[in-house]
Design a protein around this nucleic acid. Sequence first.
DNA 1: CGTGTAAGGAATTCTGACACG
DNA 2: CGTGTAAGGAATTCTGACACG
Lengths: 104, 104
Amino acid sequence: MGTQDYKTKKVISIGTVSELTGLSVRQIRYYEERKLVFPERTENGTRKFSFQDIEILNDIANKREEGVQTYEIRQEMLKENKNRNDLHRKMLKGQINAHFNLRN
Amino acid sequence: MGTQDYKTKKVISIGTVSELTGLSVRQIRYYEERKLVFPERTENGTRKFSFQDIEILNDIANKREEGVQTYEIRQEMLKENKNRNDLHRKMLKGQINAHFNLRN
DNA sequence: CGTGTAAGGAATTCTGACACG
DNA sequence: CGTGTAAGGAATTCTGACACG
């Protein structure tokens, strides 16, 4: 298992996430409801978060302190993902073109 | 928080460790008793493991399958740690000497 | 909208002990 | 020695709901 996996593997329960982020369990569940984080579920339904989720939750906490609403936070996150995807597509295209000796 | 921290931060509860390693909860507790792993404890006493602990437990599982006893596994681990420390000391000494323009 | 809380239930974890081998 | 299991208790987590603002 590579080191990157440690960041994204969902293994942390909500109580621990609460301690690590300073957010209440109620808040964390609500942010999931608002589609800001996406924990996995075990067979019996308990949520499991990754370290990456914790980073995201810390970002959310900062935004919330600035008074940003969850809906807006979600929009920002969607936009960032779009930008990242666009960039990926661009880079991929560049690589493919280079591979076939085409001009960009 | 750096990426290395994700590997050593103790945040995983014993049930999840059991799933990840294939070991029974009983076995994991016993290996702690035999000083092969050192989970942290929350205020109320539940064990928390790191990804590194999971790697160690996987190693232990392999050794046990080969019939190696916990006491021997412990001795091997202590020896490895000693070697690592010796190496570190050696490298550190080399750096210090280089810093002061001494000969090794 | 965002968060607290009491409610009832299900699943987890803990320790010390007995069992087996 | 290494591991399973039943025992009793404490703490966690879950959902749906009511409250407040």
